[in-house]
Write a protein that binds this DNA or RNA. Structure first.
Lengths: 232, 232
DNA sequence: CGCCAGTTTGACCAAGATCAACGCAAGTGG
DNA sequence: CCACTTGCGTTGATCTTGGTCAAACTGGCG
């Protein structure tokens, strides 16, 4: 299912970083990073391969070094909700309890750091700075999930797509050009829409001159208009 | 806006607890609780009053002693999403960053413990057991929020209502009788539905003999049927 | 008893889902 | 090198779920 590269000590910060990661580098709290790195293993997963599945044990959590990961939940009849997309610098897979309630898959070829939960807990107890950092990471995920409750519960298709594009842009330093490493279907499953609705909304925004659509990237031609649509 | 009762050391465990709280009592980790209690203040809020608002500073977090709280987010045009209902034993209001992105209101008369964030952080650094406990609490909220993404993104009105009733029942030790301290409108704003749809679904479930509806409580007459509807 | 807020029900409407056809680009194999 | 396949993306026609608007009902309370 995956190749494990023999790199017990990670090469965090040495390469493979793109523009989206600076919040780790910026923090400057290298001692914590080093403590964490010591217990991390570098892994490689290729496109579409499963990193973990619903129901497996959750003895590990991960951080994306490069590439994109989708974390999702399935219903028995095949309906799917993507809980989050993880880009480089993002963490995922830290769960309570014994069983994973989500699955995670590589959307592109992906390099990950994998951390053992028990080792992390030991480190947490020894080093308050690490504990603070991890708690902060969890609070960040919580805020993101709660923001998406509003999007899924109360926003129109058009508002959802506009918010999505702005979110992707912001995660990439506000670049006008937004890469879409995921399929239209993934976008639909992230936004609670069908693939057809996603397409129609994108076409509509294109017709109105707000964006330019290319199949795996989009240009934000009129960001203020997009922000007005997204209501922020 | 609120009355602050002069009770610097809480009466946790002495009274005002209903059946929904045992996970705190059960944990038996009293030293941590005592350490936390030392920095907590007991407060009282009356029905409909705001505990904090969107945009305020977030120097505190809270734990419900008795009563019910709703945590919600508003859009400019008045659309509202309730992010969570908090019953006794639940914590809320722990956020990163400087500004609250949600507001919290008392749904009924409510007794809360309020904890200072800075004091909590100090305690976290000194006492790993407290840090673990708080991190666990945040992970629990995260799991709950992520589960609701699936509900809001991919479930039908009927499935949402059925899940909601089962969730309330489970939080109350699986009782057949489910109390509804919130209005139909609150339920709608929690489930991403209108009040009319909530009513219609409840009436439909009543007609099918699955539940008995009384305006502020509901009886689960046929739990297996409800579970089948909720897809679990 | 009558008021009023909250709830329920009905008639109608619209956003988005479903179903179906078509386009298009990247393989694949002859 | 070119027909053929395959997988994704786009578009159109139609349908359905749940939203909107409006009216009636209910129960708690002065």
């Amino acid at each position: 299912m995956y190749r494990q590269l023999a790199t017990p000590r990670s090469e965090l910060g040495q390469g493979g970083w793109n523009r989206a990661v600076p919040d780790v580098a910026r923090s400057g709290q290298l001692d914590q990073l080093i403590a964490l790195e010591e217990i991390g293993i570098r892994l490689h997963f290729s496109r579409i391969h499963e990193i973990y599945g619903q129901g497996e044990g959750c003895g590990f959590w991960y951080k994306v070094v490069s590439g994109t990961v989708r974390v999702c939940k399935l219903l028995a009849d095949g309906r799917r909700q993507i809980v989050e997309f993880c880009f480089s610098g993002d963490s995922f897979g830290l769960e309570r309890g014994g069983e994973r309630s989500f699955s995670a898959e590589a959307l592109s070829d992906v390099i990950l750091m994998r951390y053992s939960r028990t080792a992390t807990e030991r480190l947490n107890d020894e080093n308050p700075a690490v504990a603070r950092r991890l708690h902060d990471m969890t609070l960040k995920s919580l805020a993101a999930a709660q923001d998406r409750l509003l999007l899924l519960g109360r926003m129109t298709a058009c508002e959802r797509v506009a918010s999505f594009l702005l979110e992707l842009s912001e995660r990439n330093d506000g670049e006008q050009r937004v890469e879409l490493p995921m399929s239209r279907c993934d976008i639909g499953d992230y936004l609670g829409l069908t693939i057809e609705t996603v397409c129609r909304v994108l076409s509509d925004l294109k017709r109105r001159g707000v964006i330019a659509v290319h199949s795996h990237h989009i240009e934000l031609l009129d960001r203020p208009a997009l922000e007005a649509i997204a209501e922020d």
